[in-house]
């Protein structure tokens, strides 16, 4: 854990709320200038983890290092962080224009011209009181702040509730383009895994407070395969492999296995009349978070 390019380094971090352990002894690092996906089910601990990393909550135990120091009440660290939350609260009398006007006070890299382009693209009504904005417009305000602040470490926690498909695509395209020109570390937490999977360089999957996948996105691609065909052929082919999921109907079976297949194994599968189907990142995570639930219950 001495990687100098790590902007975040977490060791044995836990957060308990009464009898609930929201974050359960996790260790990981976040590399500089990389887009991370923080993925997991509702209640898995994503938001709690981000609140800990941004100094908005205290850890029960373990250590957090962000830009070389603890983030809690540390202005040197916090000034480099932008945290876009699903339910950001603004002062009652605020209009959208006040949000953008006050942003440069908090973010030294704030690019007002870029913000204006985004305001136009997302069609945000500047003079309307924040309270009167639709859910999508409110999300757009957050997304614009997150992009135009160009903070060295930016968190997006489910940034696009209520944003339609067109607006989400604008967000992805602008994020990629601006990240290319101004590299920075981005941690994106979302349920829409298929939509963002190509944007991510690294994936962290959290399940029941524990990090169960900490891997390059490209290494996960092709790391699992679904094998479909007659039950006997599928069972023969998948024997001795790690099964992530299996289902069957009559004499047919479909089994998702972990691990890369060699060209020889693919040819063998074709000879046995088996169909090999790719597993998307989203499917892989659904499979992984499902099985770990079973493991957890079995061991409990």
């Amino acid at each position: 854990m001495t990687d100098t390019s790590a902007v975040v380094s977490v060791t044995a971090l836990s957060k308990r709320f009464g009898s609930v352990t929201a974050v359960d002894s996790v260790d990981f690092e976040v590399r500089e200038n990389t887009i991370y996906g923080l993925l997991g089910r509702n209640g898995a601990g994503k938001t709690t983890l981000m609140q800990l990393l941004t100094g908005q909550d205290f850890a029960s135990s373990g250590s957090i290092n962000v830009f070389g120091a603890s983030p809690v009440e540390n202005p040197d660290v916090l000034s480099q962080i932008c945290f876009i939350k699903e339910s950001q609260k603004y002062p009652d009398e605020f209009r959208a224009k006040h949000v953008f006007k006050s942003a440069p006070w908090f973010f030294t890299n704030w690019d007002a011209a870029f913000a204006e382009e985004l305001i136009e693209e997302f069609n945000v009504p500047l003079n309307r009181p924040i309270k009167k904005l639709s859910r999508g417009q409110l999300s757009a305000v957050g997304v614009i702040v997150g992009l135009a602040s160009r903070a060295p470490l930016t968190f997006f926690d489910e940034p696009y509730l209520g944003l339609d498909a067109v607006a989400r695509q604008i967000f992805y395209d602008r994020l990629l383009a601006d990240y290319s020109e101004h590299p920075r570390t981005v941690i994106l937490s979302t349920h829409l895994i298929d939509e963002v999977s190509n944007l991510l360089e690294h994936v962290l999957v959290i399940d029941q407070g524990r990090i169960i996948i900490d891997e390059e996105a490209d290494a996960l691609r092709g790391s699992a395969t679904t094998v479909a065909g007659t039950r006997a052929a599928v069972e023969r082919f998948t024997a001795g492999r790690t099964l992530l999921h299996s289902e069957s109907i009559g004499g047919l079976a479909s089994v998702t296995i972990q691990g890369q297949l060699s060209a020889f194994e693919r040819a063998d599968a074709a000879d046995s009349g088996l169909e090999l189907l790719p597993v998307s990142l989203q499917q892989l995570i659904v499979r992984s978070t499902n099985t770990s639930t079973h493991d957890f219950q079995a061991s409990a």
């Binding site: 990629l176 290319s180 944007l199």
Partner: peptide, 17 residues
């Protein structure tokens, strides 16, 4: 690589690789 990234909508680091 940035042009590849924008065109294919992928991470620039992946395009570079």
């Amino acid at each position: 690589t940035n042009e590849f990234a924008a065109f294919y909508r992928i991470n620039p680091a992946t395009a570079l690789k």
